[in-house]
């Protein structure tokens, strides 16, 4: 049920993002979704990719600080109120969201949301009960 997200520590220096993305590109890693959290000194680049284990290896070899985090990917309707319903579900179950980011699918009227919450099991349970689609890891990696 859970997706492996890669988080990379990126110092605020010219060329850091370029170096990281070039490295992934050179190793044939396909990026599914991403978000950047930024502060004055550093950023955290979060990526969902087709092969997280390999991506993690190549990044570590290049001396990047990397961690793998379990996140949840859910499918929502790509229309007004789609995300709101999911948030409402989590709020009702008293689950806080650390961060999230969304991407839309190439076809259909589906959108996907990557969720990082405090308690994955509890969140998955609550979302399932309310009939949200929880994506399997392979579904996301092979998208």
């Amino acid at each position: 049920m859970l997706i492996k997200q890669i988080s990379i520590f990126v110092e605020n220096k010219p060329g850091r993002l370029s170096a990281v993305t070039k490295l992934l590109s050179d190793n044939g890693i396909d990026i599914r979704a991403l978000s950047v959290a930024d502060t004055k000194d550093f950023g955290i680049l979060r990526l969902i990719v087709n092969n997280p284990t390999k991506a993690c290896e190549v990044l570590k070899e290049a001396d990047c600080t990397v961690s793998l985090t379990n996140v949840i990917a859910i499918g929502i309707h790509d229309k007004p109120g789609g995300l709101s319903a999911a948030m409402d579900c989590l709020y009702s179950a008293n689950i806080s969201v650390e961060y999230m980011y969304a991407f839309i699918s190439k076809s259909e009227d589906q959108a996907y949301v990557i969720l990082r919450v405090e308690n994955n099991d509890k969140a998955v349970e609550a979302l399932k009960e309310n009939d949200f689609t929880i994506l399997k890891a392979e579904e996301v990696y092979d998208m």
Binding site: Q5, S7, F9, A37, T39, F42, I44, R46, T65, V66, S67, T69, E98, Y99, R116
Partner: peptide, 15 residues
């Protein structure tokens, strides 16, 4: 220098 063990995926964690 940050070490692997101390890195977390949240800004809050690093701060």
């Amino acid at each position: 220098e940050l070490t692997e063990e101390q890195f977390s995926d949240t800004v809050k964690g690093i701060q």
